[in-house]
Simulated scan of single mutants.
Amino acid sequence: MKRLWFVFKSILTVIAVMSIICLFWSAAYFITEAIYTRFAWQPHPLVRQIISSIFGFLLFGMTMSAIGPFLRKRERVFWHHLIDAINRIAKGDFRVNLQVDWGGRHHPFAELVTRINDMAANLQAMEDMRQEFISNVSHEIGSPLTSIRGFARALKNENLSQEQRMHYLDIIETECVRLSKLSENLLRLAMLDSERYPLHPTSYRLDTQLQTLILHCEPQWAEKDVDMCAVMEKVSITADEDLLSQVWLNLIHNAIKFTPKGGTITVQVQRRGEQAIVTISDTGPGIPKHDQPRIFERFYKVDKSRHRAAGGSGLGLAIAKQIVDMHHGTISVQSEPGEGATFTVELPIRGPFS
C-alpha cells in the first residue's frame, strides 16, 4: 500500500511539473508573438523557437524567485526548530519534542522529526538511568563509609572496654567487606556491559555444576537448618561455565538469605526440547507483585532494610540477568507474598555459540 501511494504521488508530481512548464512556455509563446506583431517582425521559425524557450526559462526563473521566499518560509521555520533541537540535545537537554506537521507521516521531514523525537526520548531515558545509578552508588558507598567513620571516631575513646572495642572493629570490618563486594559487583557489571566481553563456552554437565555449588553453600544452609532438595536430570549444555556459576550462586545465596530457619529450598534441572530449565524455589516471605517487574534492575531492593541487614547491594539479580541475556536465555520470577519465590532460568542447550 505504501509503495502504491509513493508511485501515485510521483505520477501526480510529474503531471504538476509538466503542467507548470507548459503554462510558462505557453505564456512565453503568446508574449513573444504579441511582440512580433507589435513591431511587424517575422523572424525565422528556429529563431522564434529559441527566443520563446529562452524567454520561458527567464519567466519561470523570475516567477520562482518572486514566490520562492513565501514557499520556503515554512521550510525555514522547520530547519530553525530542527537546528535548535539538535543544539539542545548537544548541550545535554534531551527534553525535546518537535511538533511539525508536514501533511503526512510518510513525508521525509515528518519521518526526520519522528526519529529525532525518538532519539531524544531514548537519550533522556538513559540520562535518567545514569542519574539514578549515580545516586544509588553514592548511597551504597556513603552508608558503610558513614558507619566506618563513626565507629573509628568512637574507638578514639580511651575509656572503651575491650569488648566494645572489638565489637566496633567487627562492624568496621563488616562494612569494609560490604564496600569490597560492592566494588567487585560494579566492576563485574561494567565488564559484562562491554560488548567486547569475552565468553568462553565449553560443553559441560549443568546438573553436576549445580550439585557442586549446592555443596559449596552447605555451611550457609545447614546453619539455618534449611532442607535443601535437588531434583536434577542429566543435562549437558554449551555455555560459559564460570559466568553461569555466578548466576546460580546469586540465586542460591538469595534463597538461603530469605528462607527462614527450618524452611525448604528446591533446586530443579530439566531439559525441555532444546532448552535447559533451572528453577530455584524457596519458602521465604515472597515478593510483592508490584516489585516483581523491577527486581532485576540495578540497586532495586524489595525491602531496603532487610537487604541492608543481610549485606546486599541490589546488584546480584542484575548481574544474573546480564549473564543470562548474554547466553540468549531468560530469567523470570513467580511469587506470592508469604508463599516464597521461584526463579526460573531458561538457556539454549547449545547456546549462541554454535
Rank of each mutant, 00 (worst) to 15 (best):
K9C: 09
D84R: 05
P201N: 08
A154F: 07
E195L: 05
N136A: 14
L315C: 11
P198F: 01
E75Y: 14
I86V: 14
K321W: 03
R272M: 10
V14N: 00
I31A: 13
N136M: 07
T238A: 07
T259Q: 02
G61I: 04
K301M: 14
G142R: 07
G286M: 06
A40T: 12
I148Y: 02
S183E: 09
P219I: 05
K181N: 15
S180P: 06
M191I: 10
S305P: 02
S236D: 14
I134V: 10
I323E: 05
I83E: 06
E233R: 00
W79G: 08
E127S: 11
E274C: 04
P337A: 13
G103C: 07
H106A: 10
T266E: 09
I172G: 04
V77Q: 12
R294Y: 15
K304L: 12
K304S: 12
S203M: 06
I172S: 04
Q275T: 15
F109W: 09
S313L: 02
E33G: 04
I280M: 11
V113M: 05
P45M: 01
L182K: 08
R105P: 05
I86G: 01
M64A: 10
A28L: 11
S203P: 01
R95W: 07
E111G: 07
N185F: 09
E339R: 14
A154Y: 03
M326E: 02
E184M: 04
R178Q: 13
M166V: 10
E75T: 15
W248H: 08
E127T: 06
V113E: 03
V302R: 01
Q164E: 15
L160V: 00
I134K: 08
H216C: 03
A276V: 05
D93Q: 05
S313E: 04
L59G: 02
H328F: 09
A152T: 15
E163L: 11
D325N: 14
A27P: 04
T279N: 05
Q124Y: 09
L4Y: 10
L98K: 00
W5N: 12
R72N: 11
I280L: 13
A222Y: 00
H80R: 10
V324G: 09
T342I: 13
M191E: 15
N254C: 07
L317E: 00
R95I: 12
Q334V: 08
I35W: 11
F296H: 11
E158K: 14
M129V: 08
